[in-house]
Design a protein around this nucleic acid. Structure first.
Length: 442
RNA sequence: GGAGAGGUGACCGAGUGGUUGAAGGUGCACGCCUGGAAAGCGUGUGUACUGCGUGAAACAGUAUUGAGGGUUCGAAUCCCUCUCUCUCCGCCA
């Protein structure tokens, strides 16, 4: 959420910039300002009354000490009267602040100036593309058929056990999943991220802290008996670790990574884009999260984009980077880059990562601050996160793009070889994909 | 699930009705000292909001000792509800 002070001081800018997100904030902003004026006025009156009461109370204490009973009792009566008046102000203040809260959380984050205008996906701007599109020929199968053919991926079994969107990975399919998780985590750790294993359920406060609540309540699975939510991404627990925390300057940047399953109801999304692994209710993801000094958050965003880029290079998947337009960027984000890999058998781009700078939008809600080195002022930090990476569509593209008449042959050099229990060292391997070195035939 | 004990500042920790926003310590910042550091010494050090300021500082006010409510002229201190943590017992992967 945006800070009230910021809204007050930047009304015109705010309304103007939010147009990019196709959000008309005019009415909301003027309501907020009005309400805030009321709040100030009311608080001022309440404070003055309260100051009188406090003063009186001190006097009463002194009167009792010096044995002046009569005066003390008179002052008591005055004080009681004032207290009644204060009650009125008090309830008004409560009313105002709850209205204020509900207005404030309706305002989305301000998009960065580089965010292009647009209504939706189709208006996102491709900023970079790399890799060759594989030519697979006519017999090429989409991953859901490959999964069945090699018995590594079973959607029907998932239906039986749970329901649609809960795939079962079997045999080498499961092993591939595990290997990718390990690979992504190891890479993140090499890049300086600290590995975390968080809870998979979070409470309401956490959901609110990162902005999933109340905005996306319907997208999360909810456990009524405990009032817990299944995490839609590890961003939620990993960022909320720092809720109500004041960091030291030297603690920054905080770099954390986590692998978790993610649970999403994906309510309302049906149709052809949801086949197979393209959209599921439970999936695995390695997430990277940073908490940084506000002056450095855009450098940090670049760093994270570069990081994700080299992951995809290592996987030898053709990919492109999209700068999300105002209409497609999330409520909480100021600037987002999406990564999409090309799935040759489906002949389409699949989103596999989303890297965002939230600036202070999340941190405001979280009350996540740090102590500035010079001067003693606390400042709100900036938060960023990115998927590095989400597994299902990566798996889909790996299976599809690497299918051959002899089987699926995935370039192995990033791969944990479970049998030898070691990682093949990256430096021993060619930078550019020059052919399959070792077959992993399913 | 049963019983008990607790929750005080960035951290530890005193405080059981009247200048207590809170002793003491640690940490942190600055200064002195040092060739440099450590140690030592000194000073400072919560947050949010309101008023007054163009702004900041300073000053004044209010709130804040897990959350919410109550008693009282006055609550960190007494009462109630909730919540969390710890200990013991039970159950258990």
């Amino acid at each position: 959420m945006l800070h009230l002070k910021f809204i007050r001081e930047n009304q015109a800018l705010l309304v103007d910039r939010l147009k990019l997100k196709n959000f008309d904030a005019t009415k909301l902003v003027s309501e907020i300002i009005q309400l805030d004026d009321q709040r100030k006025q009311t608080q001022n009156m309440q404070d003055n009354k309260q100051a009188e009461v406090n003063k009186l109370s001190r006097e009463i204490g002194n009167l009792f000490k010096s044995g002046q009973q009569a005066e003390a009792n008179k002052a008591k009566a005055d004080s009681s009267r004032l207290k009644e008046e204060i009650k009125t102000f008090n309830s008004k203040m409560q009313e105002i602040s709850s209205s204020m809260e509900s207005l404030l959380i309706q305002i989305p984050n301000i998009p960065h100036e580089s965010v292009p205008p647009g209504k939706g996906e189709q208006d996102n701007i491709e900023v970079y593309r790399e890799g060759d599109m594989p030519e697979l020929g006519k017999e090429a199968l989409p991953h859901w058929d490959l999964g069945k053919k090699y018995d590594i991926l079973d959607f029907e079994l998932g239906n039986k056990l749970t329901g649609a969107g809960f795939p079962v990975f079997k045999g080498k399919g499961a092993k591939l999943q595990r290997a990718l998780i390990q690979f992504f985590l190891d890479e993140a750790i090499k890049a300086g991220y600290n590995e975390i294993i968080p809870p998979l359920m979070v409470n309401e406060d956490s959901g609110f802290g990162t902005g999933q609540l109340p905005d996306k309540e319907g997208q999360m699975y909810y456990i009524p008996s405990e009032n817990y939510y299944l995490i839609p991404t590890s961003e939620v627990p990993i960022t909320n670790m720092y809720r109500d925390v004041i960091l030291g300057t030297k603690d920054l940047p905080v770099k954390n990574t986590a692998y978790t399953p993610c649970f999403r109801r994906e309510a309302g999304s049906y149709g052809k884009d949801v086949r197979g692994l393209n959209r599921v209710h439970q999936f695995d993801k390695v997430e990277i999260v940073q908490i940084v000094h506000p002056d450095k958050s855009y450098d940090c965003l670049d760093e994270m984009v570069n990081y994700v880029e080299q992951l995809l290079q290592k996987l030898e998947l053709p990919f492109r980077i999209m700068r999300l337009c105002g209409g497609d960027i999330s409520f909480t984000s100021a600037l987002t880059f999406d990564f999409e890999v090309y799935s040759a058998a489906q002949q389409k781009w699949l989103e596999v990562s989303s890297v965002s700078n939230f600036e202070d939008f999340q941190a405001n809600r979280l009350k996540l601050r740090f102590r500035e080195e010079s001067g003693k002022k606390n400042r709100v930090a900036h938060t960023l996160n990115g998927s590095a990476l989400a597994l299902p569509r990566i798996v889909a593209a790996l299976l599809e793009n690497n299918q051959t008449p002899k089987g699926i042959q995935i370039p192995p050099y990033w791969f944990l070889i479970p049998d030898s229990n070691s990682l093949i060292k990256q430096k021993d391997l060619p930078r550019v994909y020059q052919g399959i070195q070792q077959l992993h035939r399913f």
